[in-house]
Design a binder for these strands. Sequence first.
DNA 1: TTAATTAGATTAAACGTTTAATCAGATCTG
DNA 2: CAGATCTGATTAAACGTTTAATCTAATTAA
Lengths: 335, 335
Amino acid sequence: MSNALSGKGRVSAELIERIRAKASEVGYVPSQAGRALRTGRTGVLGLVLPDISNPLFPQIAQAIEYAASNIGYGVLIADSRGEVAMQTEAVNRLIEQDVEGIVIVPRRGTRIADIGCPVAVIDSPSTPGNTVAADHWQGGQEIVEHLTGLGHRNLVLIGNNPASNVQNDRIGGMKSRIPSDGKAEVLWIEPLEQEWGKGCLLGLAGKVAEGFTAFVAVSDLHALRALTELHRAGIGVPEEASVTGFDDLLWSSVVTPGLTTMRMDMPRIAEIAVGALARVIEADCPETSRTATGTVASVEMTKVPMQLVVRQTTAPAASPTPEMSPQTPEGKCLC
Amino acid sequence: MSNALSGKGRVSAELIERIRAKASEVGYVPSQAGRALRTGRTGVLGLVLPDISNPLFPQIAQAIEYAASNIGYGVLIADSRGEVAMQTEAVNRLIEQDVEGIVIVPRRGTRIADIGCPVAVIDSPSTPGNTVAADHWQGGQEIVEHLTGLGHRNLVLIGNNPASNVQNDRIGGMKSRIPSDGKAEVLWIEPLEQEWGKGCLLGLAGKVAEGFTAFVAVSDLHALRALTELHRAGIGVPEEASVTGFDDLLWSSVVTPGLTTMRMDMPRIAEIAVGALARVIEADCPETSRTATGTVASVEMTKVPMQLVVRQTTAPAASPTPEMSPQTPEGKCLC
DNA sequence: TTAATTAGATTAAACGTTTAATCAGATCTG
DNA sequence: CAGATCTGATTAAACGTTTAATCTAATTAA
């Protein structure tokens, strides 16, 4: 009844105590529904992901949930399962559930329309309307600096799909740090698989024969693939070739050798994202919560630096490879 | 106002149409808060996980979210981040958010107390109070049947922690299918790491020297570790040794060679779990939703069979290994 | 023709909370 | 001491929905 007065208004300490006592005696818990109806605040944020089965989803979800619960919000999840149509449908489901704001990790190439509630976008700094993201470009730079610092000059950059902003940023950053006396070749997996079938070999052995000494993947997933393919071909990692990934997925540390990779500061990113949401929510609320303008474009976009995690898949480049001329002419996919 | 009458009561088709028109004209969306207050139904389920960073969390979350949204429920997530204390705290946060039921994947060894709302537990059939789970025992049986069918007789079973019900079930099932002319040795990783440090070698090369031809892990994570360790030691997979995992994590298909593993039927499990919840919710609701009895113990526990996924890490056992005597005497951890 | 039934529309009450408004008593001021 | 001020408690209104109840007019039956 007046329990809420425990903060506002004027009540005697004695009364407040009596209420408290009775409350816990009866096991009273305030109903969120009632509060929500009166105040228009549900205390719930939505989180929509392009595809929950994305391996780095756990990091995102965990960080968002943590950041949200820290400032008193719950997190309602929705999965667009990769389909772009379901993305808007998921958003609709969330706003029907009266979420006060939405954190969205958009599917590749998707633009988030102005919906009726505050939105924070986590994608890549190159995405229009983005709110916060890891600095993928800087991450790309740092990983190749690490490799060039070890003496590597000829790098194979491994990506999956050139349509991804994130992947492009990472590869862009990598390229920008290739020394003038070195060279880099980009290898896109998806087109390759279009032609040779899913799970095909990437022809990495051929690359080392051509003189490449390092394989720089845009994701630990692809790094793992490279790692095992090289192992299989009898090429020692890191003695004969170095391999790096991105994202520091869980298993990066359990493979042998441990994978050198770049890690995002997810807790930070999540904190910024939900923080931005909370700010516009708590600002807009007094007036017209239903008519909230949509995107949190007002708050300037933030880039969070990535961090290098050095493990065992990187080592100094093999001595200037005496036979560096292309011995195996075909660098093709060996599928 | 009477929009809801669109289902109950008696209204003319004409009026119903007029309402609809006006509604969409004004862009009216019914407020969940109001409905929740009146009906006591929030349409939200909670999902609490022992540790979101668990790599198979995506599968669980995705499946639960899908099953829930299919029958009109939203899913609020909560992470107990491994700490048992936070598990109950997470549950409390959820019920404060007025969830109508909770799906919980309990932390190892945790027992779920009777809280004030319906609960479905997903763990292992050996866990008391469990509602639904994959049939880990059967999974263990099937994977070794696959291996013995290929002629393997001496298997190393790799687990992490003997305190896990799930792992014990799997290993139990495995053991139950070891043929009389074969042998099996269990290798627990966690105690090993206690002694030799995290990420230490498991001494697998020694095992193949002793005559073991197959490594059966309780998780793809450990299988991956075994796979790379064997590769590293120059032991061919699957020519010289077979390796299998569990759970069919995302990357199981991208490693080279692709990992043979057992997959849970998560969609099915999720459907059963949220189905059970929905049933008791919709039954209890009319009377006393606040006084719901707690666990969904009433509905009998269900075991969902696991499915074998054969890829390339398993092959017929090498010809009866002529030199099967233990050449490398030390089977110790080589860390 | 009148009373009884009924379809369809309108009104009212209730859910549990918060916030504003009202009220009674006490302290203070002129 | 009377009127003004203030403190703390109590009461009332409102949020948006659903469900029950009331009300009107029209159709049917006697």
